[in-house]
């Protein structure tokens, strides 16, 4: 959405929450806010009312570049036949199989 179309509606932000130290930030939803500071504040109020997080990221939704779901097959299927990328592809003698 461009700057001009959001004149009355506050811009949309995506919210990512790290539930505890050591884990990844995970997408948990979105919200409207006028600026980054407000987005962080609202993210805390809306998405961590029960201590669900120790850290929050917000990013403007229009800043996220996503792969096209229409290209899903073309993008991801080439990896389907590359079974040799998995450790289980290699059957080793029992004596060394813990490697």
């Amino acid at each position: 959405m461009s700057e001009t179309t959001t004149r009355t509606e506050w811009p949309l932000w995506e919210v990512f929450v790290r539930s505890k130290a050591g884990l990844d930030h995970k997408h948990c939803g979105s919200l409207h806010a006028t600026d980054a500071q407000m987005a962080i504040q609202l993210a805390r109020d809306v998405y961590t009312r029960r201590q669900e997080g120790t850290s929050v990221w917000v990013v403007r939704s229009d800043q996220i570049i996503a792969s096209d779901p229409g290209d899903k097959d073309m993008y991801f299927d080439p990896m389907e036949d590359k079974v040799y990328r998995h450790p289980t592809f290699y059957a080793l003698p029992r004596e060394v199989d813990h490697m």
Binding site: E9, G29, H32, D45, V46, R49
Partner: peptide, 26 residues
Amino acid sequence: LAKVQDEGGHGLYLYAAAETLGTSRD
């Protein structure tokens, strides 16, 4: 207070879910 605040939060989760379908909050 906590319960009513939750209801407000639930409304926001749901508005956001509806917005993913191309409608706007306004």
